[in-house]
């Protein structure tokens, strides 16, 4: 179990980490990065899994089920769109063919 103080330390250090990681990002990567961080908070999936494993009543099971469903959507969808966007970033000379389009 985490003590309160340790939890606050983790929170503080992680906040600094996030700030540092992002602080010098070129504008060109703003979308993939936002989409990438959108994917990373898909880790809520493990929390939702715990909540559903823990569910004791029907109401809790329903909410937990919706939670896992949404979290899985966040994680998988976030990954797919980020991957698709990053795939397109090439410097000149690497390729000349137009990107995929539907």
């Amino acid at each position: 179990m985490l003590s309160g103080v340790v939890a606050v330390y983790i929170f503080m250090l992680a906040a600094f980490t996030g700030y540092e990681v992002i602080s010098r990002v070129p504008v060109i990567l703003h979308t993939p990065l936002m989409s990438g961080s959108n994917f990373v908070h898909g880790i809520v999936l493990v929390g939702a899994m715990f909540a559903l494993f823990n569910a004791a009543s029907l109401l809790e099971q329903i909410i937990g089920f919706v939670g896992v469903l949404l979290a899985a959507g966040n994680a998988v969808g976030g990954y797919v769109v980020t991957e698709r966007m990053l795939e397109m970033f090439k410097s000149s000379g690497v390729r000349k063919t137009p990107g995929r389009h539907k």
Binding site: M1, L2, A7, I10, F11, A14, A15, F16, T17, G18, Y19, V21, I22, S23, H30, L33, M34, S37, N38, V40, H41, I43, V44, V46, G47, F50
Partner: peptide
């Protein structure tokens, strides 16, 4: 009490705030 969620969530929270 899930450290992975605390770290990932906080990193995204602060990075997103900066953005």
């Amino acid at each position: 009490d899930n450290v992975a969620m605390i770290i990932a969530g906080t990193v995204v929270g602060s990075a997103g705030t900066l953005l």
